[in-house]
Design a protein around this nucleic acid. Structure first.
Lengths: 220, 220
DNA sequence: GCAAAAGTGTTCTTTGTACACCCATGG
DNA sequence: CCATGGGTGTACAAAGAACACTTTTGC
């Protein structure tokens, strides 16, 4: 019985949701993956897989699901969210290429990894309804407009800016940094940072998320 | 790397939430567990573990989480809900004893299985907010009073019978069987059966569940 | 006819949704 | 001075929570 750990890594860039893939030599594209050796914890193996493939460290991860694979194998899948801008990717040793792919235009993947991506996406969208997932996809300081844009990509529908602002501030998931940023035309926006709270984007989405699936807090 | 599958099986009886445990010889109490041999799917291994330990079949299961264990081992944990009345338990081959234990008065368990029970309970309570978990804990036909009693045990707080009735019926998770049952004093209650829908018990709980943790729909 | 449980309906409050409007900046 | 995005407030609808009352049975 062989065990693998695989990580579905998502980012939001240029108005699109993207997935991190790499390949060795000229082989098929794959998720960051590793085999747990000696007694390392699964979470650590997942973190190591990402670091090995793309040189990115310190990204929080969440266990997704354990899948059956061909033969007598199983794959423990993880979900990770990163801000591609803050964490440039570069191929590790024996990795030929690492790239971001639009989530709806992926190449052929190894094994059953498309199932991992699909479920990761489902969980990510569901988490949107009750966890401040956007802060993991944004820089340290960000405007509420940028945050809203991330949610609009994740949910694939427009949000009302006024209600969005009210909900996010009421939930206390962000705090003002005191700084502002002028960016082209229009009134300069205040810059916020994460405050660590939890919140929901809006009620309709909450209900949808609940009806379809929900994320969860892994055990301590 | 050795893999085990373990199942946290819950029931509600006599006003209490109980967990199924068994033991071999005079050893420590354990959850139903099995090692996946050849290429059997994890879900099947979980079902087989329950059947082997307690002789119970055909119970829907849901994957919970994959835990690190001592050494280089991992344990894939499952959650199962059964109506103890409909599914009598009896020790399988080489099982000395199987019993229901009150969830808050468990004996010492093997390994890290108390973590599995704790997380299973958390998930079960969270699922309460958006899935009709009670129908898995009740007979084919049941009264709304019985159903409410199950939820009161799971949530550990009293529910308003009138709001409960309204919410359950509105959500369409049960359908009338046409029969009634007189049980001692009081007006006879209509008997319902599951209709397969999803619902939430009440809003406060939904929010609590969301804030603490949530269940999820496993991938297809 | 009284206690006990089932069943129906109504009011109040909270939450979410859809808006109209003003503010500050760049061109 | 106007187009553009930022920021504030308000009116309406829906959902949840609390609660009063009638119905049907056993004793």
């Amino acid at each position: 019985m062989s065990v693998r750990v695989e990580v579905a890594v998502f980012t939001v860039r240029e108005g699109g949701l993207e997935v991190l893939l790499g390949r060795v030599g000229g082989g098929t594209w794959s998720l960051p993956a590793a085999a747990p050796g000696d007694g390392r914890a699964l979470d650590d193996v997942a973190a190591a897989a990402l670091q090995h493939m793309a040189g990115v460290r310190g990204i929080p991860m969440e266990q997704l699901y354990t899948f059956d694979r061909e033969g007598a194998d199983i794959a423990v899948a993880y979900l990770a969210l990163i801000d591609a801008g803050r964490h440039p990717i570069s191929p590790g040793a024996d990795v030929a290429e690492v790239r971001w792919f639009a989530h709806d235009d992926l190449p052929t993947l190894t094994d059953g990894q498309d199932g991992v991506v699909a479920y990761g996406l489902q969980r990510l969208r569901a988490k949107t309804a009750y966890a401040p997932v956007a802060v993991n996809l944004l820089p340290d300081l960000f405007t509420l407009g940028e945050m809203q844009a991330v949610y609009e990509v994740l949910l694939d529908r427009p949000l009302d800016a006024r209600n969005f602002r009210r909900d996010v501030l009421r939930a206390g998931v962000v705090e003002e940094s005191g700084e502002v940023r002028a960016e082209g035309r229009g009134r300069p926006a205040r810059l916020y940072r994460s405050a660590g709270g939890r919140f929901a984007v809006d009620a309709r989405e909450r209900r949808v998320a609940r009806a379809i699936s929900s994320g969860d807090d892994p055990p301590a």
